[in-house]
Design a protein around this nucleic acid. Structure first.
Length: 413
RNA sequence: GGGCAGGUACCGAAGCGGUCAAACGGGGCAGACUGUAAAUCUGCUGGCGCAAUGCCUUCGGAGGUUCGAAUCCUCCCCUGCCCA
């Protein structure tokens, strides 16, 4: 039987970083009842297994779920494998490719593995929603749909905008919020977590739970973390994300590339530093953004990779970016020469994966972006004799390096 | 079922028989600057290529007209709106 901290203390922690609690009075009631009866609250978080690469944006809400675990409540992670199988078309673009059941299972496992860097896996219940959604008959679906109206669906910002803009909305898109609501019904969720973009979906959950005779869940909305560009929300498809499994060096560099005005926000939402220290960080970020950003990067890397890795990442950054030297642990790359031991520079660049095509490589040379052992190359027709010149470090742009080696024996073998 | 308007490169959007690998904007990449950033300026942004008025692939799909098509014709697919 878990023993909970006092309700006031729980509330204090739950409120940190939260944008909105709908409605807060019900949260208090639920907490009080749980405290009285010793029964943990069921806290739900739904996730989309079509993209199992978690980043700091996902981490915001996962950290909140972890916080509930630490307070003694029951975390339930819903893997939306059923919806992924159909292909969720949320957002403007085309329907996502539908996944097979195996793919969603594999993705689900990957998701959980990654989420375990934040959650306590021992105390997390995982449920796949195909388990109950897959069993529903057409009749069940019609009954479910009858509980909601088109007008209410169109309240959703995304639907309304698209409808007005004359963009297509598939009927099945109306079914997604309902499906998600059924997840809440299935597990009798007391609280559902989500980003502010999930507000509508979580609220539908409340209505549907009531329609099925249950007490409605409390919706707890977390802010959407901006990506490294500082404008759009962090997302993989926008390429502005920092993945939680990325190597320390990469993570460090990416954190450093965020605009200054986000430094404090990242401290608040993406780190585990105690709430009491936040005001000091805010002052730090305003007074000395450069060093505050370094501390932020270090803190985040430490959370996911440990202190030693964080120190290494900092040293790496100073070496490669500030002093513009090649990283020390570059994998050697043995190119396939064009003829004998000779290779055209543009071919070498493509082979080493530093450019996508020869034309691009050529362009980069013209733009003074290519150097060998620190020396700028301006001749796009340059041919390199590997036997004479290797090993050397090939560099393209600021961040792309390759250590080119030549081994006669290995070549003939 | 009928009518109308559309489907162009990563995205938005011009082009409507040759001078189109396709204007312009966004995004991306590179260079200068810098704190790695932001802002700013400059260049590049289908592939191949000895940067040639060169070759190949591309403008929803398949055919056709033409010396020549993103541009004209036919059929098909897709989207939105209006009517039924």
């Amino acid at each position: 039987m878990p023993s909970f901290p006092p309700v006031e203390e729980q509330l204090r922690q739950i409120r940190r970083g939260v944008v909105e609690i709908i409605p807060e009075t019900e949260l208090v009631q639920k907490l009080e009842r749980s405290y009285r009866t010793g029964k943990p609250l069921v806290v739900k978080l739904g996730c989309d297994p079509s993209r199992p690469d978690l980043h700091l944006g996902h981490a915001v809400v996962l950290r909140k779920l972890r916080q509930f675990q630490d307070l003694g409540h029951q975390a339930v992670l819903i893997i939306g494998d059923f919806t992924a199988m159909i292909g969720d078309p949320t957002g403007r673009s085309k329907t996502r490719p539908a996944l097979t059941l195996e793919e969603t299972r594999t993705n689900g496992r990957t998701y959980f593995e990654q989420a375990s860097r934040i959650l306590d896996p021992e105390r997390t219940i995982i449920r796949y929603n195909s388990e109950w959604l897959g069993k529903m008959t057409f009749r069940d679906v019609i009954e479910l749909s009858a509980r909601y109206t088109v007008a209410r669906m169109l309240e959703r910002d995304d639907f309304e905008k698209r409808y007005r803009a004359g963009e297509p909305i598939g009927i099945h898109e109306f079914l997604y919020p309902l499906a998600q609501a059924m997840d809440s019904v299935e597990i009798h969720a007391d609280i559902e977590l989500g980003g502010t973009d999930q507000r509508f979906n979580l609220l539908v959950g409340r209505d549907i739970q009531q329609a099925y005779g249950q007490e409605p869940q409390v919706c707890l909305l977390m802010p959407i973390l901006e990506g490294t560009d500082g404008v759009e929300k962090m997302s993989k498809s926008l390429g502005n994300y920092i993945g939680i499994t990325e190597p320390p060096e990469e993570m460090y560099g990416k954190v450093l590339s965020i605009p200054d005005h986000l430094i404090y926000r990242y401290f608040e939402l993406a780190t585990d530093i105690p709430t009491e220290l936040l005001p000091a960080k805010k002052e730090f970020a305003e007074r000395d953004p450069r060093n505050a950003k370094h501390e932020l990067a270090w803190t985040i890397v430490r959370m996911y990779h440990g202190e030693e890795a964080a120190n290494r990442a900092r040293a790496h950054f100073e070496r490669t970016i500030i002093r513009k030297e090649a990283p020390e642990d570059l994998e050697p790359f043995q190119p396939t020469p064009d003829e004998g031991s000779r290779i055209a520079l543009v071919n070498l660049i493509v082979q080493a994966g530093l450019a996508a095509s020869k034309s691009e490589a050529r362009r980069l040379v013209r733009q003074n972006a290519v150097s060998i052992d620190g020396e700028r190359i301006s001749d796009e027709h340059l041919v390199i004799d590997l036997a004479r010149q290797a090993p050397f470090v090939l560099r393209v742009g600021k961040r792309r390096f390759a250590r080119i080696v030549w081994d006669e024996a290995q070549q003939s073998a």
